[in-house]
Simulated scan of single mutants.
Amino acid sequence: MNDETPQHSVSVTGVVVRQDGRVLVIKRADDGRWVPPGGVLERHETPEQGVVREVLEETGVKVRPLRLVGVYKNMQLAVVSLAFLCEPIGGSEQTTEEATALSWLPVAEAIKAAPEARAVRITDAFAEGGPFVRVHDGTTLIS
């Protein structure tokens, strides 16, 4: 590879929705933001395997991915995140080194608690017409 080959990190996000419609969000240890759980996809994983692992690692909740919600690119960091709508199927909720708190919030509250670039993934999980493709600067969507 030469220096002109684009380098991107690929992440996964789990928009986990219970049967009562509440959405799982975590308070990130590194920046204190409330967001859906997720993280960097490992080389040997499929995106679905990665979202299952990341949600479990960060929250103790086991999930089943249902569908791709969208593709989100952080233009500042060159991170592409694949968001999946997931349903909880077991596990036990716990805080971790990455998540100092977790909560099941009503959709509107989860959207309000998260920065726009993360909240839109929740909005998109409940919208028709996806999967969506969006770009952001880490906090705010870029049109």
Rank of each mutant, 00 (worst) to 15 (best):
K73S: 12
G60M: 13
S92M: 12
D20Y: 05
A83D: 11
P65T: 08
R33D: 10
I89P: 02
T96P: 06
V15F: 04
E87Y: 13
V80R: 05
E109T: 00
R43K: 03
L66V: 15
K73R: 13
S81P: 03
K73T: 14
G21S: 02
L82S: 05
K73F: 06
R67E: 15
G70A: 13
P37S: 01
L68E: 14
V55R: 00
I89S: 05
R18K: 15
K62E: 15
L24F: 11
R53A: 02
R33C: 04
L105H: 02
W34Q: 00
G39A: 03
V35L: 08
V17F: 15
R33T: 14
V25C: 01
V55K: 01
K73L: 14
E54Q: 03
E98D: 12
F84H: 06
C86E: 03
R67D: 11
V52L: 02
L56Q: 08
A83S: 15
V61M: 10
P65C: 10
G50F: 05
V17W: 14
I89E: 15
L77N: 09
T100F: 06
G21H: 01
P47Y: 06
Q76L: 14
K27Q: 14
L82R: 10
R33K: 08
V69H: 11
V71R: 15
A101T: 03
L77S: 11
D30I: 12
V107Q: 05
R22K: 04
V52I: 14
Y72E: 06
V12G: 10
R64D: 07
P106C: 01
G91L: 11
L82Y: 07
P106N: 07
A83W: 07
L77P: 01
V17S: 11
Q76K: 14
E58G: 05
A101M: 06
P47A: 04
E42P: 00
I26N: 02
I26R: 02
P36Q: 09
W34F: 03
E87I: 12
V51H: 01
S81F: 02
T96C: 06
A29E: 15
R33Q: 05
A108M: 03
T59I: 03
G50V: 01
G70Q: 09
A108E: 15
G39E: 01
L85A: 06
D31C: 12
L105F: 01
G14W: 15
T95Q: 12
G50P: 10
Q49G: 07
V61Q: 05
P36L: 02
M75Y: 10
